[in-house]
Design a protein around this nucleic acid. Sequence first.
DNA 1: ATTTTCAATATTGGATCCAAAATACGGAGG
DNA 2: CCTCCGTATTTTGGATCCAATATTGAAAAT
Lengths: 222, 222
Amino acid sequence: MSPDQARRRPPTAQQFVLAELRRAITSGRLRPGAPIRQDALAEELQVSRVPLREALKMLQGEGLVAYEAHRGYFVETLSLDDLREVYRIRELLEEEAVRRAVARLTDADLDRLESAQEEVERAAAAGDVPAMAAANRLFHMTLFDRAGMPRLARLIRTLWDATDAYRSMYYGDPGNRERVVKEHRATLDALRRRSADEAVTTLDLHRAHAVADLAPLLDPAP
Amino acid sequence: MSPDQARRRPPTAQQFVLAELRRAITSGRLRPGAPIRQDALAEELQVSRVPLREALKMLQGEGLVAYEAHRGYFVETLSLDDLREVYRIRELLEEEAVRRAVARLTDADLDRLESAQEEVERAAAAGDVPAMAAANRLFHMTLFDRAGMPRLARLIRTLWDATDAYRSMYYGDPGNRERVVKEHRATLDALRRRSADEAVTTLDLHRAHAVADLAPLLDPAP
DNA sequence: ATTTTCAATATTGGATCCAAAATACGGAGG
DNA sequence: CCTCCGTATTTTGGATCCAATATTGAAAAT
């Protein structure tokens, strides 16, 4: 019997490019609305335009970049309405994910959530915004992955990433960081008690606060 | 003032390829699980592999094809669990879409739904499976588009298309076609009465029947 | 001053070519 | 007969080159 069934494949340039682009966009280094110049980016990443374009096509499908034929790719901009819509859809999907996850949560899962949360707290205290964003994402996705619905988890992940460029602004404020920490604690407590209802409620509040705080940062109708 | 604000752009090969590929997969001409040979397909479509690969990357994002590095693209296969998951997610999203749509439905919208339904009935009676699939899709999407949530509508559309290869089998049976027609009628009646609850219920039933009938056609755990 | 035209430039779209990896094949050995 | 191993072939991944389109800028006309 072969030692690893799913054989390790050599990394491809497009995977590297995809990861780099994602970081550049979600971190805000590429600003919303900015055109993406393929030649410049390709040179910066030391690859040709082919894998870059393939990565862009993926990001287009995920809604991170917009595409116009013969004009190229642009970092997607979200209107306030768009933001509200994304969060509303997440509300629908995450409720399902949380309910399923709670029914299957093991103590080991709770330990993983606890350590993710500790990392969130560490990053929040240190004011390390990128680390906080990463840890926060890990916390939520660890939970959602436990639902045993991979497509649902992937959809939530995609919606999550679609607002990452704005999330970074949100974490810039220490007060917001503190509140995120507190709300995670409330969710984690509910999960420990296996209370799906409470977990859903705390997460809904969590999201509502985020929308309320992000709203003023966005143009009313671009 | 210019006559058309959004200027018509020349069509790109990748758009053509994307549409062709979608048809080939959803119609079942490319069977689930089949490898997609880029050279052969490119030659058949009279384009180079570059636009083909970009189209494949989009379809990968939509879940119509699976990708393995250095092995290429394959038409996505759905297990029974996958199918159930897709339909469950649709249930969540479509409920929201229907409720919002009902609140905004105009008489003109109802007329459009009526004519879409008439086309479904014509195709069903004639046993024209592709026409029925197209008309059926139009009926549902016309409704969902009225929700005024473009991202939600796009998600539903994507989930819908992900099972199209199997839907064609389903429509092969005259009895199934008849039932679809009846269930659409029930939904349309509910919409005319502006009863969101009933519309949601009839659509839930509609979906449940489809899953029940498709289940035997799928491998239990591929 | 404003608008229009038209050439020059920049940028994207697509085709071809080469490199790298996986698969298929065939022979040697058990 | 089956397994293992090495080579040939096929297929994908990526780079480069050329064509098509959009953008920019300056000159000319109103």
